[in-house]
């Protein structure tokens, strides 16, 4: 697979480490309690279709990316820097 790195252009997926569901960006507030953390730690969506997921450019510039990928076709619909996504959400 080739991942369109927002800073570096198309990069081979072999340079990346995969983490999974980008919901991991949304760490609960410490006051949210155990149940919220339990959801955060253990529950992931695994859709057959469009999925937003985290990839780490470990053999590259160390950027964490949020990649939007269709898990059925492996089509990649976009890639953003995680810190930009997080900044936008904040």
């Amino acid at each position: 697979m080739l991942i369109p790195h927002p800073l570096l252009g198309l990069r081979d997926a072999a340079e990346f480490t995969y983490l999974g569901d980008a919901a991991l960006l949304n760490r609960p507030d410490p006051g949210a309690g155990e149940a919220a953390f339990c959801d955060y730690v253990y529950l992931r969506d695994n859709p057959a279709g469009v999925h937003r997921e985290l990839w780490y450019h470990e053999q590259g510039d160390r950027s964490w990316l949020v990649v939007t990928r269709n898990t059925l076709t492996h089509e990649i619909l976009g890639a953003e820097l995680a810190r930009d996504v997080k900044g936008g959400a904040a």
């Binding site: 480490t17 991991l24 960006l25 780490y56 964490w64 810190r83």
Partner: peptide, 18 residues
């Protein structure tokens, strides 16, 4: 060594970029 660094970068970029 690799895993901790990766997790530190995760914390820096994905949890607390501010």
């Amino acid at each position: 060594a690799g895993l901790v660094f990766r997790n530190m970068e995760f914390a820096r970029q994905c949890l607390w970029p501010e």
